[in-house]
């Protein structure tokens, strides 16, 4: 049954592509958009509709395309992003059919076929792409894989996703709004933040291994604060690829060595302001309490550090503004 449905979907997709490729056979998708175009993605150069009408998104593409008002017909679940969504996006998120779970391996190919997309945007890291049967998806619709690399690259990544889905107009409007707000905050802290050597404790330390996550410039916890003028000194001892190029996991014993030089330290907390177990482990450590920055009262919680879209980054920016406010007091 599934094979028949997929075959039917493949045939439908092939017909759609043929129609797009032939001039005059169908009315143009949009007045100014070409019928098809070649898009460069992680999985190669892919021929996609010029103005997609039915888009399926997974992974990091979900919040990006929700924000960009792309014509979504199916999405994967993206629970980690729910607290960062606007009410409108959250409503759309809840209403849209779910065609995959949180993990790439939970992709429901039949549900995707039933959604009858004309474009599938996969937003997972390259190594995770191996968990998805891309050929099976290509039988349904053109597939573009646009996955994250280093955390701070969400800016380009989300724009590429919006571009593929033909939703740049709304995307660029939100981006410009973010940039304007970031410039405002940076101006506000211009006399303070750039002069400080900052350290950051990330949310993903592993208590069972007795370590903590230290994040440097370009990481999840730091990249939005950087837009406000913050500078997180140092770099990883050994680059591990992706997020591990900009963050590392030293033993709790090395907490003093990691942050002894820091003028101020920020740390990730959840949207509700509560630290994760990994962060709480650091905050409860006697070594933390002895750090110069902590003793000086310059330890600041940052919310929404997992922001990967401009809309959510505005929340993160507001949190940065709120957290660093004590630094402005003379």
């Amino acid at each position: 049954m599934r094979t028949i449905r997929l075959a039917a979907a493949a045939a439908a997709a092939a017909l759609t592509l043929t129609a797009c490729g032939s001039s005059g056979a169908e009315p143009p998708a949009a007045e100014s958009a070409p019928e098809t175009r070649v898009f460069k993605a992680d999985n190669g150069e892919i021929k996609i509709p010029g103005a997609p009408k039915r888009v399926v998104a997974t992974g990091y593409a979900v919040p990006a395309l929700l924000e960009a008002d792309a014509p979504l017909v199916g999405i994967s679940t993206w629970k980690r992003g729910i607290p960062l969504m606007t009410d409108e996006d959250r409503k759309s998120y809840e209403e849209l059919p779910k065609i995959a779970g949180e993990a790439a391996a939970e992709t429901n190919y039949e549900a995707i076929a039933q959604a009858e997309p004309d474009l599938i945007v996969i937003g997972v890291p390259k190594p995770v792409l191996a968990d998805i049967d891309v050929k099976r998806l290509e039988a349904i619709a053109p597939v573009v894989a646009i996955g994250p690399s280093v955390p701070s690259a969400w800016r380009e990544l989300s724009r590429n996703q919006a571009d593929a889905a033909g939703a740049l107009k709304r995307f660029d409007a939100v981006r410009d709004e973010y940039k304007a707000k970031a410039a405002e905050v940076a101006k506000k802290y211009a006399d303070v933040l750039p002069k400080l050597e900052l350290g950051h404790v990330g949310a993903y330390g592993e208590v069972a291994k007795g370590n903590f996550q230290r994040e440097f410039n370009g990481s999840w916890g730091t990249n939005v604060a950087q837009d406000a003028g913050a500078n997180y000194y140092g770099k990883v001892k050994v680059k591990g690829g992706g997020a591990k190029d900009v963050s590392e996991y030293p033993s709790i014993e090395e907490l003093t060595a990691a942050f002894a030089e820091a003028d101020a330290i920020s740390y990730s907390v959840g949207p509700d302001g509560k630290p994760s177990a990994g962060v709480q482990y650091v905050l409860d450590s006697p070594l933390w309490k002895e750090l110069p920055a902590v003793k000086a009262g310059k330890a600041f919680p940052l919310r929404y550090t997992e922001a990967a879209t401009y809309q959510s980054a505005m929340k993160a920016l507001a949190s940065v503004d709120e957290a660093f406010a004590p630094l402005l007091k003379k």
Partner: peptide, 13 residues
């Protein structure tokens, strides 16, 4: 997941 990995690290607190 954190608890199930029998470990002596991170339990000192």
């Amino acid at each position: 997941r954190f608890w199930s990995v029998g470990s002596l690290a991170g339990r000192e607190q």
